[in-house]
Amino acid sequence: MVSAFKKALESGKFVVTCEAAPPKGTNLDRMAHDIELLKDKVDGINVTDHQSSVMRFPSLGGALLVKELGGEPILQMTCRDRNRLALQADLLFASYKGIHNVLCLTGDSIMLGDHKEAKSVFDLDSSQLVAVVRTLEEGKDTSGNDLDGGVSFCAGAIVTPEATPLEPQLIKFEKKIEAGAEFIQTQAVFDLDRFKEFMEYARQFQVKILAGIILLTSAPMARFMNKNIAGVFVPQDLIDEMASAPKGQALAKGIEIAGRMIRRIQEEKMCDGVHIMAIGKEDLVPEIMSVAGLI
């Protein structure tokens, strides 16, 4: 079973993915609305897994919703909340239910979220989780026992191309590829010249790279990310550009910047596609894609 997302990656087209965040609670109306809006415009919808360690409706349930509504889900799985038994079980269930894309993440610290006193697991790390996906596909569990009925996944992971120091991240990036990652989503990139340098290095590997694009919503938001989000660096000229937007027009400026960046990435064939993170404003993704000339 080759997933539609994997087919898109292999087709050579410029791939676009986005996110859908499950709610805190069981009211899926807004998420369903976003999925309906996005499902025919993008190649895959990432469903986040207790993003920022905030307890929510599960990513597996969200991915099922994407599937039910006719979209292509990419199941985000972190290693923070489940041990290897639970992760494998969820992978079996996902594959059985027709969810055939998985993004393997270490996961934010529990201390960043809303259940700070909870026990964090990290029985596996992100590169080991990629390897687990490949082991299950071979018909075995991680203890070497035979599976009755197999799984099939397009497995991916992430990298932070603007981390300081960079080399430790790249060593881990290479481990993820060696473990069997087929695609890599990057942390948000803003300085595309620096991103091109990363891609000159990354091109040597047999892996598809999707550049992470975060929608800037205001100059203070950009400054906040610079201060608080590891590996995210919004250059001063972009902050100035955001700040120059007339009152009430900052978001429109952010859409323009995101669209412009995507257009440049595609025109210069920097990488294989983009992963758009609109963080709570997923309904604006079509507009960003329109500015980028993708739809």
Partner: peptide, 20 residues
């Protein structure tokens, strides 16, 4: 390592410091 990771850093590290 706050997460006890054995294969390299997580994405939360910045300038040699821990995410938490």
């Amino acid at each position: 390592c706050h997460k006890g990771l054995v294969n390299g850093p997580c994405g939360g590290t910045d300038n040699g410091k821990c995410e938490i």
